[in-house]
Amino acid sequence: MSGEKKRYKATIAGKSYTIVGSRPTEHLQLVAETVDEQINQIKSLTDNLELDKMAVLTAVNAVSDQLEMQIEMEKMRQKITELETKLAKFEEG
């Protein structure tokens, strides 16, 4: 039942949040831990940056990583298509 919403209580940057989602609890926990780690990394690199600004920087980093992964995935799809074409030509000949 992947459509069923789950609630997960998390502590991120010392504050409590309830995350609601249809993913498994383990996934929600990993997301919360990753966000907390990234905010703590940003906090360690900056002086007196407010939590909302750290959250925005964390979001910017996450979107940047996501876009890089999408680019890599598209490159892999293109490579797979090329290899499938070569394989089909090899099997024909």
Rank of each mutant, 00 (worst) to 15 (best):
L51R: 05
V56G: 03
M76R: 05
Q70W: 02
L51H: 03
T58C: 11
A62K: 01
A55S: 15
L49P: 00
Q70D: 12
S44I: 02
A55P: 04
E74A: 11
M69E: 15
L67H: 15
D47N: 11
K53M: 08
K53S: 06
M54P: 04
Q66P: 02
T58R: 03
T46F: 03
K75Y: 09
E74I: 01
D52M: 06
D47T: 15
T85L: 09
M69S: 11
L49R: 08
A59D: 05
A62H: 02
Q78R: 14
E72A: 15
E72M: 08
L49Y: 01
K86F: 02
E74T: 10
A59W: 01
E68A: 12
I80R: 07
L57F: 05
D65P: 00
K53V: 01
L45F: 04
E50I: 02
Q78P: 05
N48S: 13
V60M: 14
E84F: 06
Q70T: 05
Q78V: 09
K53E: 08
E74N: 11
L45H: 13
T81W: 05
M69K: 12
I80D: 10
R77F: 09
Q78H: 08
E50C: 03
D65W: 01
A55I: 13
A59E: 05
T81E: 13
E84D: 14
A62T: 09
M69T: 10
M54Q: 11
L87G: 05
K79N: 09
I71G: 10
A59M: 09
M76C: 12
T81L: 14
D47P: 04
V60F: 07
E82C: 09
A55T: 15
S44Y: 04
D47K: 13
T81A: 15
M76A: 13
E68N: 14
E84C: 05
D52A: 09
N48M: 01
I71P: 04
Q78Y: 04
K75A: 08
V63T: 14
M76F: 00
L67S: 13
E74D: 12
D52G: 04
K79G: 00
Q70N: 15
K75C: 05
I80K: 10
T58F: 03
L49A: 06
L83M: 14
M73N: 10
E68T: 14
I80P: 00
E50F: 07
T85I: 13
M73V: 13
V60S: 09
R77Y: 08
Q66D: 03
M69A: 14
A62C: 07
K75W: 06
A55C: 10
K75Q: 13
Q66L: 13
M54A: 06
S64N: 14
D47G: 02
L83T: 07
Q78C: 11
M76Q: 10
A59F: 02
I80W: 06
L83R: 06
N61D: 00
K53F: 00
Q70S: 13
I80T: 08
E50N: 09
V56T: 13
T85R: 04
E50H: 06
L87M: 10
D65E: 13
E82H: 11
E50G: 09
A62Y: 04
T46H: 13
E84G: 07
M54R: 09
I71K: 15
A59K: 01
D65M: 03
R77K: 12
L83E: 13
K79Q: 11
T58M: 02
K75V: 06
M54S: 05
S64A: 05
